[in-house]
Write a protein that binds this DNA or RNA. Structure first.
Length: 174
DNA sequence: TTAGTGATATCC
DNA sequence: GATATCACTAAA
């Protein structure tokens, strides 16, 4: 079942754990459909969250975070890696969920590389789009929480908060 | 551990 | 205009 807008119009702290175990689907221009199960997400919530891009205020780039739920926010990191987020919650409240890993593709940039996600998908609606969408196939993951990654600059409080959600049944342990 | 890479924000 | 920063990865 393809997830609709209602799924994303809730708080990111509800949406992020529920996205774990879902299927992200990508249809390429030649008609090929790629499906990958999401194994890891992270929540970014509000201007007060120092790790959220919107914490520095509304800018052209973060404008999407303030927009409607279900919008895909794609961000180029370190000049070579595309990271994919889905906007959640109410309009004018900046929050979103980072798709951090898929089954067999640990690492946010590997996932977007595999799915060929880039700025062409930025700003498109994930529930009303025939090239990227998310499906629920009834899989029920075992959710584990952990601290977010790669945000050391955000200060102790936000760095240590456990807004990372992992499918514990799939996770390959260190 | 470090190099690579380019958009964005912030400061002239 | 110039610089500093960054939700990462691969190679070593």
């Amino acid at each position: 079942m393809k997830l609709g807008r209602d799924f994303f119009s809730r708080d990111c702290l509800e949406v992020a754990p529920e996205l774990v175990g879902k299927i992200i689907a990508r249809k390429l221009s030649d008609g090929t459909v790629i499906r990958v199960r999401i194994t890891e997400t992270e929540a970014y919530r509000g201007e007060e969250d120092k790790a959220c891009h919107a914490s520095k205020g509304r800018t052209p780039r973060t404008e999407l975070l303030y927009g409607e739920s279900g919008v895909i926010y794609v961000y180029l990191c370190y000049g070579m890696h595309w990271l994919m987020n889905v906007i959640t919650g109410e309009k004018d409240i900046p929050q979103g969920v980072l798709i951090r890993a898929g089954e067999g593709y640990n690492g946010p940039a590997k996932l977007t590389k595999r799915l060929m996600i880039n700025k062409e998908q930025n700003g498109t609606y994930i529930y009303d789009n025939d090239s990227v969408w998310i499906e629920d196939d009834g899989y029920k993951p075992y959710i584990e929480t952990a601290k977010r990654v790669g945000i050391d600059y955000a200060g102790e409080y936000w760095r240590d908060i456990e807004w990372r959600f992992i499918d514990g049944s799939k996770e390959v342990k260190k």
